[in-house]
Design a protein around this nucleic acid. Structure first.
Lengths: 228, 228
DNA sequence: AGCCTATGAATGAATG
DNA sequence: CATTCATTCATAGGCT
């Protein structure tokens, strides 16, 4: 990907250009370009809305013309344009792999070094799809969980949770969202969080600044006059 | 790759500073520009958040057992009472905070100094509870993880999808997931989803199917006839 | 058809 | 910084 010298001054074209090199991409922008970007951002917001709307509509009708790739719901638009979008599910060790992993784990040689992991991965790869990360995670989880099991076996008690409520304590923590959106900042919530000093940086920044009158959204709208 | 320098000075102030070395495109935006961009991104993030809220509101005609406080679920009752929640959980950045952090990180100005962290913290505090330690840790982790990730990138390939386990193995996956890593698709930039920036160890399937380079943005615009 | 559980993966924080 | 730990999120399967 190359750019011309001239392009820099004409904003109608190439307002944003990237150069890839070693997978890195550098950005060069004039401020017209930036302006353009700004518009794009705004536009994108609109698009997002459209998508959200569409998503809503579709999930409402339960009838989507979209396709499904694995467990990944892909709506028509995405499907139409995102020819490259593929779905992948999490790795599941084959029984053989599991056996091997277990046996290695049983050797007790704690955390396998990176090198070790590589080797293991290579070996396991003969029995099915696997990656080093998978192996790494597996050991990580294996250790953590066996440890936890151990420590909890001593005391038989109920939920150490903070349910000060006897009334229908229903603590479901299942995300019902279909279109997993971002988390909404917990504003106006008091903080009880304090941390362990160590990093030297001062701790505790308790309070949550509740939206103090600053409404970025409207600001933006105002500024750009977007979204009606 | 080179350009005229005359364009550079066109604007009021030395808006742009291009520095090249070995034909590599280094930092090419002025700090103000960076800052500006950053703000734009943040603004967009805010919009997204709004959209998310909207989405939730719309689709939340269903039951929900509790509300979420940051990373922490609590029963409606408790929530309403709103006090005495012995909840001390680890900090979870809001999407907005994340966006900001990411954008700062992307500026590439390495490890923020303590002073810098303070500033960042202050800024982020507007969007949710946060402490300097959090910020510090975040950068710490971000750096470490992206680095590890990098090292493995060299040995990718070699395991093409056409690979052995072609049968029935649905090793694909790409979830649009949350919007937390919103990509502003600029021209010619593909791929929005990178698997886990962590572990560094080859994230298997993490391979991003590099396409022929379609432009999602324009496609969307086309689809929706947006942005005139 | 829906919960439940086991477990792969992500990530904030802690430790060396 | 590099690793590791701890906790949590998300999901594949299984059971009812």
């Amino acid at each position: 990907m190359e750019w011309q010298n001239q392009e820099m001054q004409q904003q109608e074209e190439g307002y944003l250009q990237y150069q890839f090199q070693n997978g890195v991409c550098g950005k060069v922008m004039t401020d017209e370009q930036m302006e353009e970007l700004r518009k794009q951002i705004v536009a994108y917001a609109v698009i997002s809305e459209q998508l959200a709307e569409m998503h809503k509509a579709m999930s409402a009708h339960q009838d989507f013309t979209g396709i499904r790739l694995g467990n990944f719901y892909c709506d028509p638009i995405v499907a139409s344009i995102g020819h490259n979008i593929t779905a992948r599910q999490r790795w599941t060790p084959t029984s053989l792999q599991l056996q091997i992993l277990e046996s290695i784990y049983d050797l007790g040689n704690g955390t396998p070094s990176k090198q070790k992991i590589k080797e293991i991965t290579v070996e396991l790869a003969q029995h099915g799809q696997i990656s080093e990360t998978n192996v790494y995670n597996w050991f990580q989880n294996r250790r953590a969980r066996s440890k936890r099991k151990q420590q909890s076996s001593g005391s038989i008690n109920a939920e150490p949770e903070a349910d000060a409520e006897g009334l229908g304590t229903k603590e479901k923590r299942t995300k019902p969202e279909s279109l997993k959106f971002i988390d909404i900042p917990a504003q106006g919530v008091e903080s009880f969080y304090f941390q362990n000093p160590d990093t030297g940086i001062d701790q505790f920044t308790g309070k949550v600044e509740s939206s103090g009158g600053y409404d970025p959204y409207n600001n933006l709208v105002e500024q750009f006059g977007l979204l009606g």
